[in-house]
Design a protein around this nucleic acid. Structure first.
Lengths: 189, 189
DNA sequence: TTTTAATGTAATTCG
DNA sequence: CGAATTACATTAAT
């Protein structure tokens, strides 16, 4: 019997009591506690080497308009009337790109990769033959297409999901059609 | 044999492949072959008395292709004519393995469990104290959280993997930062 | 709005 | 058990 779980039960009920589990249950299982998981989301694309003055606070800066108007957060609702203020009008392409990177940083998401048509075609061709390319193939593709291996792997994952989805859908449609057909026959008889 | 990437590349570019992937590579011959005799994976959640959908997914072995999934995707560009033969002749062991895997998923992958926030909270709290809970603790948790013990075990496994991953990453970042710092010092001297 | 790259994590497999 | 990989549900960029 582990009486220690009662602590857990308490936590369930919203009691943030100090987690004191009975020693017995932890006995012999004393682990090196990394109490601050620190959960680094792993964002290698936010390269720390890019600038020598690689200050962390650099990315916490909230972009704003030159005139002090705060930058429209993409998640927010569009501002109907202020169309004339669209930030595109204020920044060059490269400036927008860097702003975007900053946004991506504090939102913690890798900038969306835009595959070229050629890259997609090659990937599709490989997919047709083998939709589970091993690491060797992926690395090979990465070199040949000038992409990171991770992009390749993700691409295949998403591609498989897409295939499955389409399969599901067609199956559903078939089932529906059959259902309707049967129904019709019954009515006719 | 099956078309390889050279053909694929040619199809894409219309030029004599500068990209050449070896057949072995494409077919993933380097991958682990699991042509092992079919053993039953025991899937209690694949309830025999579930509804219509069950049989549909269970044995859709279409002669030409498992599950009716066509690899030259129906909506996609057709492959060269030679495709009309028995598929056994066209797919390597590893490809068949892939297909088999896919088949397996369709007929029996446990539905993804969505833990509630409370469940996760309790699990995290226990994890903080002991990330290798023995069977008794797991059973206890299972009862308290109304989950199967297996889910608990898997959760801890995945949680440990996650912790390890985060350690690796923070280590990497630290190393990188040190590297940059050293570089900077050298430049300054 | 639709498609799809990216994320987080539960589930599976193998050694 | 860990490591690697996968499916799958979501989020969000285009």
């Amino acid at each position: 019997m582990s009486p220690n779980l009662q602590e857990g039960a308490r936590l369930v009920e919203g009691k943030p009591s100090s987690t004191s589990f009975s020693i017995e249950s932890i006995l012999g299982l004393d682990q090196k506690k990394d109490d601050a998981p620190s959960m680094k989301p792993h964002r290698p694309w936010a390269d720390t080497c890019s600038s020598l003055g690689k200050d962390a606070n650099l990315r916490l800066h909230v972009p704003s308009f030159p005139n002090g108007i705060s930058f429209p957060h993409p998640g927010d609702h569009p501002m109907p009337e202020e169309r004339a203020m669209k930030y595109e009008n204020y920044f060059s392409a490269s400036e927008r790109a860097s702003l975007k990177r900053e946004l991506n940083w504090y939102r913690g998401r890798r900038p969306r990769t835009a595959f070229t048509q050629n890259q997609v075609e090659v990937l599709e061709n490989v997919f047709r033959v083998n939709c589970y390319p091993g690491i060797d193939i992926r690395e090979d593709l990465a070199r040949k297409l000038n992409l990171e291996e991770d992009r390749i792997q993700i691409w295949f994952q998403n591609r498989r999901a897409k295939l499955k989805r389409s399969h599901r859908e067609s199956q559903f449609l078939t089932a529906k059609k059959n259902f309707n057909t049967n129904l019709l026959e019954q009515i006719e008889n």
